[in-house]
Design a protein around this nucleic acid. Structure first.
Length: 579
DNA sequence: GCCGTTTTCGGCCCGACTGTTTTCAGTCG
């Protein structure tokens, strides 16, 4: 998939043009195009020129550049630019506090072309006296370089959200806030987030800030003003707090929730209607009169749009859908009726069946599947055929006594490197549910890996393909598969695809989920729980599902027990009659 | 460089904070 590469090149072009001080709108065009290509589920390689231009932000010129890169493997325009601007300057742009103007100045005045040189000089105090640079700026540049060396990368949402919720609780207790909410990518449930955005309304913003910078979580205060303050937590996560008046809370919430691309679209629409939108409200440009802003919905009403849930605000079609009243009714956490991927003590989990039952009851589930590892996965104490059949009997006997909850007898079956299944059909057919997944041979070719998943889906007993790309966010790249082939096979065989809610996985990712929905595939949101608290990962899975535009009907585990079992039988029938 | 409910040319989102300045440029989100 060349999407990432092309997005990377366009971003690189934008950086270089920025250093050269070129037309900001041209720069924005490259950035917007990069973002839209990156968010594409389809491989650009397979898209024809006429279709390329239908991607928002791609016109004739960028379509040509994309084609050139696909055909030749490089882009002459970019190669030329790179020769003119040293790569070290582009790196310097990533230092917080350093922007294109300063980088350009440093290059022109004292020929700095690398971060290391800049750091050495700043430490000696050699930057003072340059245009616009005195002691403070020099210190800030050093701080910025230190920060980039600590590498504050994006963190999985599952690591950041609990920190954010803790800060929210403390602010609610100790600060005079009226309304309080998370904003930014955290509120949009992105799989990874860079920082925590918090919005509050208050009559005494100064005091709110006073409380905020004294929270026990605070390691360092980056900046402090009456409406905007930023800190770094001990975990190294940046938290931005904005405080506004009550009458502006809705407008501010919309503004700070983003995404940036979504906001820009809203504001452009506003201008065309003679309105202005900022974080304080919606205003009539001519009269200056405020026509809304207390509630977030005011913004959408003013533009005659349906309310867009935060998870959809990425400018990937949600605005058009809001215009034509075609936004989906998104799946909710309380519509989930069960968890279809859970490990017990019988393989590498820590839970006894009794404990799994308790946890399911606590969450009001109708059913819960026990899906331990299969024999090939020795490292996870995978079960032999005999052990699996024993467990199956145990579950049947539990079910005789259970009321209002069904234990599903299942397995997480390894799809072996040669593409064969870990158990024969006569074993699988005794189970309620079979979750199949890849745990080995990640480095096989794209074709081989795709073939393994496809052959698993063609098995009549395989209900769900688990964590279909194998990615571990920040730790392991997804293995290479032809996702389009996998999704079309899922459709034709009636196999569901898992959205693994484990924070490091969140696999499928949102852009593929959206594509899966277009194809009419069912998705199962599962936690892959090994330890009790992990049942609560469900909310991350639901968040990502919502980002993929899923409604209740798209999600297999919103089905009742009866509907779920019927779904499995339909697949078995379908395969037997077509093979 | 993109794009079209005023437009195929001339627009293109908006404001807070910081530091270096005497009114503002640069950076960030």
């Amino acid at each position: 998939m060349k999407n990432q590469e092309i997005a990377h090149i366009f971003t690189g072009i934008a950086d270089i043009l920025e250093i050269r001080g070129e037309n900001p709108f041209r720069i924005r065009a490259y950035r917007r195009a990069a973002q839209n290509i990156e968010g594409l589920a389809e491989d650009v390689t397979g898209i024809h020129e006429a279709e390329l231009k239908k991607i928002p932000g791609i016109g004739q010129d960028l379509a040509d550049k994309i084609q050139e890169y696909i055909k030749t493997g490089h882009l002459v325009f970019y190669e030329k630019l790179k020769k003119e601007v040293p790569s070290g300057l582009v790196e310097m742009l990533h230092v917080p506090g350093l922007g294109p103007k300063t980088v350009k100045m440093l290059f022109e005045k004292i020929k700095i072309i690398a971060i290391d040189d800049l750091e050495r000089l700043a430490k000696k105090g050699g930057l003072k006296g340059l245009p616009g640079i005195q002691k403070k700026t020099e210190d800030n540049i050093l701080k910025g370089i230190a920060m980039i060396k600590r590498r504050t990368e994006r963190s999985p949402i599952g690591h950041v959200l609990p920190v954010a919720e803790d800060i929210l609780r403390k602010l609610k207790e100790g600060a005079p806030v009226k309304e309080l909410s998370l904003a930014g990518s955290l509120r949009r449930w992105k799989d990874t987030v860079k920082d925590i955005d918090v919005l509050a309304s208050s009559k005494d913003p100064e005091y709110v800030m006073h409380v905020f910078i004294r929270l026990p979580q605070v390691k360092e205060v980056l900046m402090k003003g009456p409406t905007k303050t930023s800190i770094i937590t001990h975990e190294g996560i940046q938290v931005d707090l904005r405080v506004v008046e009550e009458g502006s809370f809705g407008a501010a919430l919309a503004y700070f929730t983003g995404s940036k691309a979504h906001n820009i679209r809203l504001r452009e629409m506003a201008v065309k209607r003679g309105l202005k939108i900022n974080e304080y409200g919606v205003f009539n440009i001519k009269t200056g009169r405020k026509i809304g802003g207390r509630k977030e919905s005011d913004i959408y009403k003013a533009l005659k749009l349906d309310f867009v849930p935060p998870e959809l605000r990425e400018d990937t079609g949600e605005i058009e859908a809001a215009v034509y009243k075609r936004l989906p009714d998104l799946v909710e956490l309380d519509e989930i009726r069960g968890d279809l991927h859970v490990h017990s003590k019988d393989s590498d989990g820590s839970l006894r069946i009794e404990e799994i039952i308790d946890e399911a009851r606590k969450r009001g589930y109708q059913y819960i599947a026990v899906t331990d590892h299969s024999k090939s996965l020795g490292i996870a104490r995978g079960m032999s055929k005999e052990q699996l059949l024993d467990q199956n009997k145990k579950i049947l006997s539990f079910n005789k006594r259970l009321r209002g909850l069904r234990l599903l007898s299942g397995v997480e079956m390894d799809i072996k490197s040669d593409g064969t299944m870990d158990y024969p059909d006569e074993v699988l057919k005794k189970l309620d549910i079979v979750v199949a997944s890849i745990h080995s041979g990640f480095r096989q070719s794209r074709a081989q890996l795709t073939k393994r998943l496809v052959s698993a889906m063609k098995n009549p007993h395989v209900t769900i393909i688990a964590h279909p790309t194998g990615r571990l966010i920040g730790e392991r790249e997804a293995y290479e598969v032809n996702m389009e082939d996998i999704l079309t096979t899922a459709k034709s065989t009636g196999t569901a695809i898992e959205i693994n809610a484990y924070p490091l996985r969140l696999d499928l990712g949102d852009m593929y989920i959206k594509r899966a929905k277009e194809l009419g595939i069912k998705l199962a949101i599962s936690t892959d729980t090994h330890v009790a608290y992990q049942f609560d990962f469900m909310r991350y899975g639901v968040g990502i599902a919502r980002r993929g535009w899923l409604g209740e009907k798209d999600v297999l585990n919103t089905y009742t027990y009866k509907e779920l079992m019927k779904h499995c039988r339909v697949k078995q029938f379908k395969i037997r009659t077509t093979v």
